[in-house]
Design a binder for these strands. Sequence first.
RNA 1: GCGGCUGUAGCUCAGAGGGAGAGCACCACCUUGACACGGUGGGGGCCACAGGUUCGAUUCCUGUCAGCCGCACCA
Length: 877
Amino acid sequence: MPSAYHPEQIEQDVYALWQSGGYFRAGRDTSKPPFSIVLPPPNVTGSLHLGHAWNNTLQDIIIRFKRMSGYDVLWLPGTDHAGIATQTRVEKTLREEEGITRHQLGREKFVERVWAWKQRYGGVITDQIRRLGASCDWSRERFTMDEGLSRTVREVFVRLYEKGLIYRGNRIINWCPRCETALSDIEVEHREVAGTLYRVRYPRTDGQGDVVVATTRPETMFGDVAVAVHPADARYQALVGKTVRLPLTDREIPVIADEYVDPEFGTGCVKITPAHDPNDFEVGMRHQLDMPQCIDSEGRMTALAGAYQGLTREEARHRVVEDLERQGYLVQREEITHAVGHCSRCDTVVEPLLSLQWFVRMQPLAEPALAAARDGRLRFVPERFTKVFEHWLENVKDWCISRQLWWGHRIPAWYCDACGEITVARTDPDRCAHCGSDRIHQEEDVLDTWFSSALWPFSTMGWPEQTPDLARYYPTNTLVTGYDILFFWVARMVFMALEFTGEVPFRDVVLHGLVRAADGRKMSKSLGNGVDPLDVIDKYGADALRFTLATGTTPGGDQRFQWERVEHARHFINKIWNASRFVLMNLPEGFEPQPLETLPLDLADQWILQRFAETVARVTEHLERYDFGEAGRALYDFAWDEFCDWYIEFAKHPLYHGDDQAKIRARTVLLTVLDGLLRLLHPFIPFVTERLWQYLPVAREVLAVQAWPKPTYPANGEAAVTRMRVVMEAVQRVRNIRAEYGVAPGKAITCTLRCDDETSLALFRETQDYIRRLIGAERIDLKLGGEAPAKAVSAVVSGATLDVPLADLVDLAAEVERLRKEEQRLVQEVERCQKKLANEQFVSKAPAHIVEAERAKLTDYEQRLAAVQERIRALEA
RNA sequence: GCGGCUGUAGCUCAGAGGGAGAGCACCACCUUGACACGGUGGGGGCCACAGGUUCGAUUCCUGUCAGCCGCACCA
């Protein structure tokens, strides 16, 4: 075994070992209770980023924990076809490599190309997930465009349509002129940007002056069909019903009254452009106004804009403002900041556009989802997300599901050229269901990618077929995902599942945040501050990355990525490696551990076994609550501080100087704790723990399927912890003396241990071999009471005083000074305890064990204070 | 406007109703028979501010200030 851990040498082999044994396959033992998670499917064309790495690490921790805890686990992986992203990607390749557009290629050929791309690159991200160590059941891998999943999508669409929950309608939608497709509300990111509020004069046709409207989008004026004022606005009441002339055109439009207008804002007069503004659209509907479109799907001005036709929105705005100004219509410019919608995919300014699209009627679907959140069938971790979830569903608008793309599930609707009716069917029809005509053609649009993602928990298990997997593993137990897709994905899965399976798709929703750059900013391509998880794995190993991400987890929170933390995680793993090496080096060939209860455990053994049992309990509890950070930190502390720094050091005495029985005892305890520790650590750092565990004499099969430890408390464990605390303090005190007096580490000292009573004497007699080794003493003189030796430096602990004779090194004045400080500290402690105990309220109202503990502390401090004071007197005499 | 999060050591962040923690950084010492990716010792914090609840608050409640994030509106 090398003296340092080299992840690159083992990770691939270990993963292959797991794979070849089929240990990740669900259903290996169906007598166990099932536990299932579906992996949030990453974009098939994407590559792993730190967010995925985090998300996958957390899921794998749960999955491995549950697998070891006796569940038949299913972790179902897969990828998402990611409509816009994938299409854009392939279009880019076509453009760069062949200089052609998708239109030149035609729909069918283009879609073939996308499939070819998927075949070639679709495995990249799943391979990266494997490198992380994810224990997915790859035999059940799915893709949202698979035949089976496509059938689910189709079935769902048809049923929703038949139920009247899907409709086609002319609505204002968010349109991305660059992607040339509709977007749903949540695909639009609103950002505050600097803009200008223009005040424009619209002359009254009766010659009685003007109406001044305020607008940030003067270029939409060609789509104006009215000017609206508030019905109660005294300034304008006389105006309602009059008409005004639209500048730069020869059109006249009416002034109408509508409550939507805020009299306080701008001039209190609003131009109404129903085809290009959602609010204006509502006004238009109420007043049955025309809805002419002055901007087209590429973001250019239409013929309606007259001389401005063909200009982009931006160019048109510029020119319109210029012309308005030149002709005296522009009254004022005001610099303002306002929120503008941007395409979440490409960042282009979104154009609200009146357009014929397909929608899902949300209200009937939202109600059951809300109920599930409210009555606790769905449980969010952390809990505060429940409110966010509910709030969104309470205010949700109909979901625009049609996308003007070629890559995706094509909407199964056919239009009849004869009667104009729509046929929606499970199998491709060849005639119109209404008139029987064969002159039908299929809808060109595809479905929003989130439509198929929304079905993921049950589509992947074969719904609508009643498959064995669906029966056994659905509903799933837990979903782990980032809070950023709570609405996009989680909410939609919930209402779809409730509608089609009658059950919530998962019980627990565990949400985590974002991985940010070290300075706290988001990682982004434009900032160039992204970190590739594969680079991290190459440098430090997958386990180090996993441990970093897991211990950096705080429920529902973001975390910053820092290389130093990864480095530190690797140090920790290296520590585990070397602790294991130590244990293994001290096990003779063919060593067989004895049952612990048959061995005469000493105090150190009882102590570490007790602490280990407590750690098992804590880690298990934290994992049950999905508190990954706390679980990881608890393991870190136990492994490094208690097992490595103390117990292994203790164990060296019996191992090197003990008799056979002492050796067997130490070896057994070391092996027991190491075995258990590797099990506890396995969900966090699976590669190295698997590798190490394989070396253990107790190894059979693989660690990945071994049993999760149960807390086994040794006899007298709690007492051992209390007693060992004193021993460890004694060691630390003497080490401190050595350091303060500059005693060379190699130089042996002697030490007198004066005990206050028999109890204390027994404790130190029992542990003096350990203490001697750890303080570098050649001899310890144990006594009951008595005087300190001459020229000694002293440390007082509970029940005893340690005196270290240091001859000439001792400066009496300095030593008195040192003891005075200690005295002062103890006086403060004594006073604090006394004050507390003197408070009758405290004594009568605080829990008995707290009061009792306080009394015990007081006694201890008083004794120690007396000992220190006595020592000072002796030195001063 | 509505909702939420955060404020703790120089930095990054845990924590919990009964004596302030970790890592990094810093200082000193150390190749001690697992590990220098290590060991030992050490310095460093009115736990943002003000009230309240409580025998006891850094922890719970309210408010203030500061930073951040959602959602809605913004002609």
